[in-house]
Amino acid sequence: MLHTVNKSPYCSDSLRLCISYAGKDDAVLLIEDGVYAAMCGGNSEAILQGAEVALYALWPDLQARGISEDKLVDGLKVVGYDGFVELAAKHSKVQSWL
């Protein structure tokens, strides 16, 4: 299953919930304000550290928010919309944690 999170981890429990629901074969894609969780050094890093899932962030949304690659948490992969489509196709369904 592919999970998407579009909320900042500082205003919503979506990311925390998503991570606790995601199975080990799942992927989590951060989009929109969800990409703030991709920045290293913040409190939200702890949420991701325990996660066993593959973690992605959408680069157009990172760029729009001034988050450069050197500020990203370790182990996170950056994808564009083409990568988003690939992830959605690869996984059997998509769960949007709105």
């Binding site: 299953m1 629901y21 199975g23 369904k93 709105l98």
Partner: peptide, 13 residues
């Protein structure tokens, strides 16, 4: 609940 969710075909939020 996460296991039941994983067994679905379609999810509406």
């Amino acid at each position: 609940l996460s296991q039941i969710m994983a067994a679905q075909d379609v999810l509406f939020n």
